[in-house]
Design a protein around this nucleic acid. Structure first.
Lengths: 380, 380
DNA sequence: TTGTATGCGTTATCAG
DNA sequence: CTGATAACGCATACAA
C-alpha cells in the first residue's frame, strides 16, 4: 500500500511540529504539552508510524536486544535442504515401532533454556535474538558470532558452543554470559551461570549409600572435555569418600553422554556378569540406555540393579521404570542468564558474576522401587 | 579493557586508508586490491573491530533479521518473579507420581516450529528474533509487536497470537507471514503457511471406515475459534460423506483442546454407556485424556474403542497404547515460514503466497492393535 | 582501485 | 515547552 515507511520527518510535518517533539512525545510524553502530544499521536496513528529500530539503536547506543548463541550440533544430522514445493496431500504411514531417537534429547534441554531466556527478556521489555552455530569451522563460527555481537547489547553463550578463542574475540566487543559449568571457577572475564552439578551428584550418592546401603557402584561417565561431566564425577567421588568408600575402587565406563554407547556397555557388563549394585550415570540419556539393556536382559530395576541419571529430561519420567535423577532448573538457567546479563549491562565494571542454581534430587522407581502415590510434586 | 568500540574510522586510520575501502573490504573483498585488503584485515584484527549492526541496517535499509512472534499463553501460569539469589544446594524430593501436566504440551509444538525457523534462518545467513506476546492487552500487544516490527525485515506470526487489528497495523510496516490455517483462504494481504488439516483428517476417517469398518463415531472438538479445529472437522465430515455416512448423525463433544476436559467428557460417556466404536479427537492432548479415561475404566483400546488424535506430539508416541494420529511437520512449518518470508522480501509485489504442507497419517496401536515390528519409520 | 561526500532515521544537546 | 542541529557508524553514488 504505502510506498515508503514514514519517518519522524513525515510525522513532524503531518503534525506541524519539529522532529524533536515527535521524538520526545515517544520517549518522555510528560515533557511535552498535552495538546501537541495529542497532535503528534494523531499523526502517528494516521501514518502508521513505527520508529526504526536501527536508527534508534544507532543513536541511543543500545539495541535492547540480547543474543543467545547455541550450538547443538546433532541438528545437522537431519538438516536436509528444504524447498517450498506444492506437495499437498496426506501420506499414510504405519508406524511400526517406538522411535528411540534419543540422540535429539539435548535439544530439549536447549529448548528449555531458550524458553527461559524468552520469558525473562519479555518480562524486562527486551528482545531476544537466537542464533545457531552449526557445522561451521572456527573461522565461520567466529564470524557468525561476531555478526551477532554487532547486533546485540550482550551475548549469552551456551556451554561449549564456541571455542575459547572465539569467546575471547567476542568479549572484546560485548559482555558475555556463559551458561555452563567451567573448568576452574574464576576462569576468565565473563559471567557464569551454572547448576550445582557437584552437590547434586554427591547428595545422590549419599542417599544411595545411606538409604539403600549400596556399596558396589559403577560410574557411567560422559565425555572428558565436558566440565559438567567432570563436576559430576567430582561430586560422585565426594559422596563416596564422605561414607568411607574409596572412589578408586569404583569402575568407570565412558559412554560420552550417549544412549547407544551406554546400552552397549551395559550389555557387555551383563555378558561378563560384572554388574554392580548401582549404576550411576552422568546424564539421563545414558541412564535410559542402561535401563534398556538391563530390561532386555531380564534384569530387574531396582531390585537387581539401581540406575540413576542426571538432568531430569522428560524421558527420565516417561521411562518404565521412571529414573531417579538430579534435575536441573533448565528454564531458570535461561532466566538467570538474562538476569545476569542485565545486571552486567547496568554495571559494566563489576566483578565477574558466577551464580549457581540449585538442583533437585528426584527419587523415583529406578532406585526406590514402588513409590506411594501422594500428591504430585510441584515443579518449576 | 578497551574503552570504546572501534569503528570504521578507527580501522581506516589504523590501516591508512579511507573508510570506504574498509567498508568495501568487508562487503565486496574482490573489489579491493589484495594488498590493501591485507592491510585492512590486519587493522581489523588488531582492533577487534566488529561492524555495528544498527549502523549497517540503517545505511543498508535492511536488518538481516527475521522476527518470530508467538503467544502461547499458558506460559504465564508458571511465570513467577525470578530473582537471582544465592541459594546453592541440592534439594531432595520424592517424586511420587507421573506428572501429567499436559497443559504445557503446545509449548512443544511451538518449540519445534521455532527450531525450524532457527535452522532455516541460519542456513540463509539471517538472524532470528523471538518475542513472546504474553498477557498484554491489545494495546500492549500492538506496541510490543510494533517495536519488533521496527527491528526486523519481516515478521512471522504464530496463529492467533495477535488480534486482527494488530495484524493490520503490522502489515503496514513489514511483510507478515502467518503460521496458521485461516478461516477463508485468500483472507488478507499476508502470506500463509499451514498444513493439510482437512485432508489429513479426511484420510484418517476413511481409513477407519475402510479398514476397520467403523460406522459409529464420536468427535471430540477443539475451541470454536480455532481455524485448525474447524478445518479438521470439515475434513472429518468429508471423510464420512465420502463413505455415505451422514455427519449429522455423529455426536460432537467440545473439549477445547484440553486433556482434562476430554478426560472428563469421556468418563461421563462411560457412565452413560454411550461409547462409540471410534473416538476421533481434534488434537493429541484430548486423545490422551480420552485414553486415560478409558484405561481407568478398564475399557480396552482399540478392541473396545478406537482412539485417534491429531498433531503428532511426543506424548502420542510414548503413551500406552501409542496413539494413531495425523502428524504435522512442525519443524518444516518453521522452515517454510522463513522461506516464504525470504521470497516475499525478494519479491515484495508478488501475489500473497499460501503454501500448505502435507501431513502424515501415523497408524499406531490405538487404532490398529498390535503392529508388527518392522524397521522404524523415518521421520523428518 | 580508492577517496569524498551524502544520506539513513533517531536521540540528545543547546539555544530560544 | 519547542525547535534547530550535531552526532551515531556505515553504505554507496560519484569523482578522482
Amino acid at each position: 500500500m504505502s510506498s515508503k515507511k514514514p519517518t519522524v520527518y513525515d510525522v513532524a510535518k503531518e503534525a506541524g511540529v519539529s522532529i524533536a517533539s515527535v521524538s520526545r512525545a515517544l520517549r518522555k510524553p510528560e515533557s511535552v504539552r498535552p495538546a501537541t502530544r495529542e497532535l503528534i499521536d494523531r499523526a502517528i496513528e494516521r501514518l502508521g508510524y513505527v520508529p526504526s529500530g536501527s536508527a534508534q539503536s544507532l543513536a541511543a547506543r543500545r539495541t535492547g536486544v540480547i543474543g543467545l548463541f547455541m550450538s547443538n550440533l546433532d541438528e545437522l544430522d537431519d538438516l536436509q535442504d528444504f524447498t517450498l514445493s506444492s506437495v499437498d496431500d496426506a501420506r499414510v504411514k504405519i508406524d511400526p515401532t517406538h522411535h528411540t531417537d534419543y540422540h535429539r534429547n539435548d535439544s530439549l534441554y536447549y529448548d528449555q533454556v531458550l524458553r527461559g531466556c524468552e520469558l525473562e527478556t519479555w518480562r524486562r521489555g527486551l528482545s531476544l535474538m537466537v542464533n545457531l552455530g552449526l557445522d561451521r569451522n572456527e573461522k565461520g563460527l567466529t564470524q557468525l558470532a561476531g555478526e551477532m555481537a554487532g547486533k546485540v547489547d550482550g551475548l549469552i553463550v551456551m556451554a561449549r558452543s564456541v571455542p575459547d578463542s572465539t569467546l575471547e574475540f567476542l568479549k572484546r566487543r560485548v559482555p558475555v554470559v556463559m551458561v555452563a559449568d567451567a573448568p576452574s571457577d574464576n576462569e576468565a572475564g565473563y559471567d557464569l551461570v551454572r547448576v550445582s552439578n557437584r552437590k547434586g551428584m554427591r547428595k545422590l550418592v549419599q542417599h544411595l549409600i545411606d538409604t539403600h546401603h549400596v556399596d558396589d557402584f559403577a560410574y557411567i561417565a560422559g565425555p572428558d572435555d565436558s566440565p559438567d561431566n567432570h563436576k559430576r564425577y567430582v561430586g560422585f567421588c565426594e559422596g563416596l569418600r564422605s561414607r568411607d568408600i574409596n572412589p578408586e575402587t569404583v569402575p568407570i565406563y565412558r559412554a560420552g553422554f550417549s544412549f547407544t554407547v551406554a546400552r552397549t556397555i551395559t550389555l557387555d557388563m551383563v555378558t561378563r556378569h560384572k554388574i554392580p549394585r548401582a549404576l550411576v550415570c552422568a546424564n539421563d540419556q545414558m541412564a535410559l540406555g542402561v535401563c534398556k539393556a538391563l530390561t532386555d536382559s531380564n534384569i530387574r530395576i531396582p531390585q537387581d540393579v539401581i540406575v540413576t541419571g542426571f538432568d531430569g529430561i522428560k524421558e527420565s519420567e516417561t521411562n518404565a521404570p521412571r529414573i531417579t535423577t538430579v534435575s536441573q532448573p533448565m528454564r531458570n538457567l535461561g532466566r538467570a542468564a538474562v538476569s545476569t546479563m542485565v545486571q552486567r549491562l547496568e554495571n559494566p565494571d563489576a566483578e565477574p558474576y558466577a551464580i549457581e542454581l540449585p538442583v533437585t534430587l528426584l527419587l523415583r522407581e529406578s532406585s526406590e522401587g514402588e513409590i506411594s502415590k501422594k500428591r504430585p510434586a510441584t515443579n518449576i
